[in-house]
Design a binder for these strands. Structure first.
Lengths: 226, 226
DNA sequence: CAGACATCAAACGTCTAACCTTTAGAGTGG
DNA sequence: CCACTCTAAAGGTTAGACGTTTGATGTCTG
């Protein structure tokens, strides 16, 4: 009798889901070590093999990193980032930049449509921080602020999917950013582009926002090629 | 002798890589069942637990589907699709469409820049097939041709990363397409938009190509909202 | 006291072997 | 021809054992 509410989902999948929930809920913070396998076995009431299947699934997707002889650490809060990072290794800088251009342009357009006053305030603050960091030669802070600005634009788009995609590709984008900045003669203070984008977003001018991003990244592409 | 170039990577990871290679190389075609666990154990020379870790990693990413009591089947050729599909469940139709608009627009622009004569020929052929399918009321063929057209544009962009991303999101995009077409009053023959896009690509007019996609999808969005 | 080295315990990596549950398909009887 | 039964195959799960790596502890030496 099929009364059986049975057809129960594989235990290992439940384990995977529970582990993912622990990470996404923040109970296991980023960069921190999670409990050892024996502890989790006891806590979840499953055998080691089952538990390891769950762990490895998340490890493979980049969310966890398992270090032999040491422990297992949280490396990302989303599962896309792992796959995205792996894809990156197979593609050139130019192709990455082209994809980013597509996402960035759309994010800017939507941000112009949907950004709140808080969004605009945050964007302005990040631009100020970016400028100050450059002035005092703090490259790391500069990169963080620059990336923070772009990521905030994606968030201001009001589209969670776009935002998450952007975050997932973020690590790679950010790497490119760092690579750029180390080139001789790079000037990290092109306020024009970023300020214009913030202006367009605040004004709600979608076309201007999109055009600004387009101009910024295209010049960036030329600079890379040159 | 720790010079050891050793520090060999986990065996399970090698297994995962080998399985992925089998799928991506096409040796294990889509929708087909892969060898059983005992066979793979013998073939790869690893224990069942190790093998299962590799399989489950790919299963979790959506590339394989493991059916208890039956076997394991190939469900996708990329690992992004699984994560992408999962993300889809958490987002609305509108947000999906917005992301697609960003990717589609960029694909069209790049296609106008890089498309070969073969690309254009293929695009024209797909449009013809699309039109004919609509005429004879073959919805499935219509959807297939329509999706094929868009996917071919992404391919013609000459950007493998963009193409792969597009393919990864393809299943979900296609689902939306089918949902649309079932609405009463839907006219699947808007040749204008698609033909104009093909024209722009053939002419190498980037701005026109991007504008055409923008117009098409925006009207589509309005139609969905209305 | 500082640094190099030896040692140990903890944690993950892998293997073996068994038993359970589910599934698809062959086989059988109506 | 259909429905039922039965069975072999395949994956699901568990248990225990041993190997390997890593980080930390402790000790010895200069």
């Amino acid at each position: 009798m099929a009364l059986s509410p049975s057809a129960r989902p594989p235990l290992a999948d439940e384990v995977t889901a529970k582990l993912r929930a622990m990470v996404q809920s923040g109970e296991w913070p980023l960069h921190q070590r999670i409990p050892s396998e024996p502890e989790l076995m006891a806590g979840l009431g499953v055998s080691r093999g089952t538990l390891r299947e769950g762990i490895k699934a998340l490890a493979h997707s980049g969310m966890l990193e398992v270090r032999r002889g040491d422990g297992t650490y949280v490396r990302a809060t989303s599962e896309l980032s792992g796959a995205a990072r792996r894809m990156y290794q197979d593609h050139t800088e130019q192709h990455i930049l082209e994809v980013r251009l597509g996402l960035d342009t759309q994010a800017a357009r939507l941000a112009a449509r949907n950004a709140t006053a808080d969004d605009v305030t945050a964007l302005r603050a990040l631009l100020t921080a970016r400028d100050q960091a450059w002035s005092r030669g703090d490259y790391e802070a500069w990169a963080r602020a620059d990336w923070g600005f772009h990521e905030r634009v994606a968030q201001a788009s009001g589209n969670p999917l776009l935002h998450e995609l952007y975050l997932s590709f973020g690590s790679a984008f950010h790497q490119d950013l760092l690579k750029q900045q180390r080139r001789p003669g790079f000037d990290g203070r092109p306020r024009e582009g970023h300020d214009l984008l913030a202006d367009a977003i605040e004004a709600g001018d979608e076309d201007a926002a999109a055009a600004t991003v387009d101009r910024n990244l295209n010049s960036c592409a030329e600079w890379l090629a040159g």
